Deep mutational scan, measured.
Amino acid sequence: MIINNLKLIREKKKISQSELAALLEVSRQTINGIEKNKYNASLQLALKIAYYLNTPLEDIFQWQ
């Protein structure tokens, strides 16, 4: 199981879903879906999320 901390980290950094989506060149709905565990981010997208949030990938998506 993967624990998804994207919403928590994004909100801590005061970045909206729309802002993050624009940086990543995806839709806001994609970010929303990832945060609600409706969609799994591809490895490429997960790495981009970590880069733009300046946060280690394993802090955003944790295996349990």
Results as ranks from 00 to 15, higher is better:
Ile15Gln: 03
Tyr39Pro: 02
Arg28Tyr: 09
Leu45Thr: 05
Ala41Arg: 01
Asn5Cys: 11
Lys48Ser: 07
Ala50Trp: 03
Leu20His: 00
Asn5Val: 04
Gly33Met: 15
Tyr39Glu: 11
Lys12Tyr: 09
Lys13Pro: 01
Ala22Ile: 11
Ser18Asp: 13
Ile15Met: 15
Ser27Lys: 08
Phe61Tyr: 03
Thr55Gln: 05
Asn54Tyr: 05
Ile2Tyr: 12
Met1Asn: 08
Asn40Asp: 09
Val26His: 03
Asn40Ala: 13
Asn32Lys: 13
Leu43Thr: 09
Ala50Tyr: 06
Asn54Ala: 11
Met1Thr: 11
Thr30Gln: 09
Ile60Phe: 03
Gly33His: 12
Gln44His: 13
Lys48Leu: 07
Glu58Pro: 09
Phe61Trp: 08
Phe61His: 00
Gln44Val: 11
Ser42Thr: 12
Ile34Gln: 00
Ala22Phe: 09
Trp63Arg: 06
Ala22Pro: 00
Ala50Arg: 02
Ser16Asp: 04
Ser27Met: 02
Gln17Pro: 03
Lys38Phe: 10
Leu43Ile: 12
Phe61Ile: 03
Leu8His: 14
Ala50Cys: 08
Asn4Ala: 03
Leu57Met: 11
Leu23Phe: 14
Leu23Asp: 06
Glu58Arg: 12
Lys12Glu: 13
Leu45Asp: 02
Pro56Cys: 07
Lys14Leu: 09
Glu11Thr: 10
Thr30Pro: 01
Val26Met: 04
Leu6Thr: 01
Gln62His: 09
Asn5Arg: 08
Val26Thr: 07
Ile31Trp: 03
Ser16Cys: 08
Leu6Asn: 01
Val26Ser: 01
Gln64Leu: 05
Asn54Lys: 11
Gln29Ile: 09
Ile15Lys: 05
Arg28Lys: 13
Gln17Leu: 11
Trp63Asn: 05
Lys12His: 12
Ile60Tyr: 01
Ala22Thr: 12
Tyr51Arg: 09
Tyr51His: 13
Ser16Gln: 04
Leu8Met: 12
Ile49His: 00
Arg10Ala: 03
Asp59Ala: 10
Glu58Ile: 08
Leu57Thr: 05
Lys36His: 13
Ile49Tyr: 00
Glu19Thr: 11
Ser16Gly: 07
Leu24Pro: 00
Lys38Asp: 09
Gly33Glu: 15
Asn37Glu: 05
Ser42Gly: 10
Leu23Lys: 12
Ile60Leu: 13
Asn32Cys: 10
Ile34Cys: 04
Asp59Val: 08
Glu19Ile: 05
Leu47Val: 13
Lys13Leu: 13
